[in-house]
């Protein structure tokens, strides 16, 4: 009887130990699912930055699976894609812009979903209601405040400092986009401090930019944030080029397309920076505790060709800190 009990116990122990070993052997870490929402193709750089950032932080491609939803600048499509993404229930969602973040927030509230969200560049997230506070977001959202609102005044200062001869600045904004409106207010305040004349132009009221007749020499264009305005970039570049006036955009792609300069966080660097949030959340932090960050760096980019084409005097000090881009070389695939 003793022997039978002994055998029984030893068998149980051995089988348990073997099962544990086998289970441990076969236990594979499931890859993290990261849902990515982008309103249009122009967010590709952010996505690239995100992937690169995660890679440099030590996450290889096997550890992270991306579920990318690109709405091709269609808000309705974006909404449907958000519903589908929430059904997939990813571990984290990264939104690559303000529109994506706002729509996601609405849908998540409706569905009462609790998935951590990192916004990779949203202007004024607190004002949009994504977070409660910059230091302690308090909810499911955290990420990068891309500062487009707050540096609107700085961009005005930079533009007028770069080309001191500017007498009037046409400020292109979108009254239907809250951030754009907030940026305009900021710009107006700075203009007052700097004693600069500005002329706000609301693109929401016009299907295209009807400024061609009103723009004169020694005037300039200042672009405020709005995905609608981003869609009008080519038109604005054409206007500036035709009128031989300086134009200050937000993103380097605007300078690449022909604007004189841009000052803002690059899409790529925002995506890259967002990777840190993803890593922190994967490591167990709650988005509620992760303070919203400003962009690590703001790029001041000058299109060399545009600069050379416009016949104005430039502030050499500012030119010394600017990054020059050469659209022709970019077009040819060179850097």
């Amino acid at each position: 009887m003793k022997t039978k009990w002994y055998l029984f116990i030893v068998t149980i122990i051995a089988v348990t130990a073997i099962i544990f070993s086998v289970l441990q052997f076969h236990q594979k870490e499931e890859p993290f699912e990261v849902g990515v929402l982008m309103i249009g193709k122009n967010r590709d750089q952010k996505f690239n930055g995100l992937k690169k950032g995660l890679e440099e932080l030590g996450f290889d491609n096997k550890e992270i699976t991306y579920i990318v939803k690109n709405a091709n600048d269609d808000e309705d499509k974006m909404k449907r894609q958000i519903v589908a993404l929430l059904d997939d229930n990813p571990d984290i969602i990264v939104t690559l812009g303000g529109v994506e973040s706002t729509l996601l927030k609405e849908e998540m509230s409706e569905e009462n979903k609790r998935i951590p969200v990192v916004f990779a560049g949203v202007a004024a997230p607190k004002e949009l209601g994504l977070i409660e506070d910059y230091r302690s977001p308090g909810g499911l959202f955290t990420g990068i405040n891309n500062y487009h609102t707050s540096i609107s005044g700085k961009r005005l200062e930079l533009l007028t400092n770069l080309v001191p001869s500017i007498q009037l600045v046409h400020v292109i904004y979108d009254s239907k986009i809250e951030i754009s409106q907030l940026s305009l207010n900021e710009t107006k305040e700075a203009a007052k401090k700097l004693n600069i004349r500005i002329h706000p132009y609301d693109v929401s009221k016009n299907s295209n930019v009807n400024l061609r007749n009103s723009i004169k020499k020694e005037e300039a264009l200042l672009i405020l944030p709005s995905f609608r305005i981003e869609a009008l970039t080519d038109e604005l570049v054409s206007l500036a080029t035709d009128k031989q006036i300086p134009a200050m955009g937000l993103y380097e792609f605007e300078a690449e397309k022909g604007m004189l300069a841009s000052y803002g966080a690059s899409f790529y660097s925002q995506g890259y920076q967002a990777a840190r949030f993803v890593s922190l959340i994967i490591n167990g932090n709650s988005p509620a505790d992760l303070p919203v960050e400003l962009p690590d760096s703001i790029r001041f980019v000058i299109n060399k060709e545009t600069k050379d084409a416009i016949d104005v005097l430039y502030n050499q000090d500012l030119l010394s800190i600017a990054e020059y881009i050469y659209p022709d070389q970019i077009a040819r695939g060179e850097k």
Binding site: L7, V10, T11, A17, F20, Q24
Partner: peptide
């Protein structure tokens, strides 16, 4: 520790086998 656990599993298996043979 995982190696030790596997080792112990092996020891348990050996003990079981040896026990059967010994019995």
């Amino acid at each position: 520790n995982s190696m030790l656990q596997n080792g112990l599993a092996a020891v348990a298996l050996v003990i079981l086998t040896v026990s059967l043979i010994s019995i």
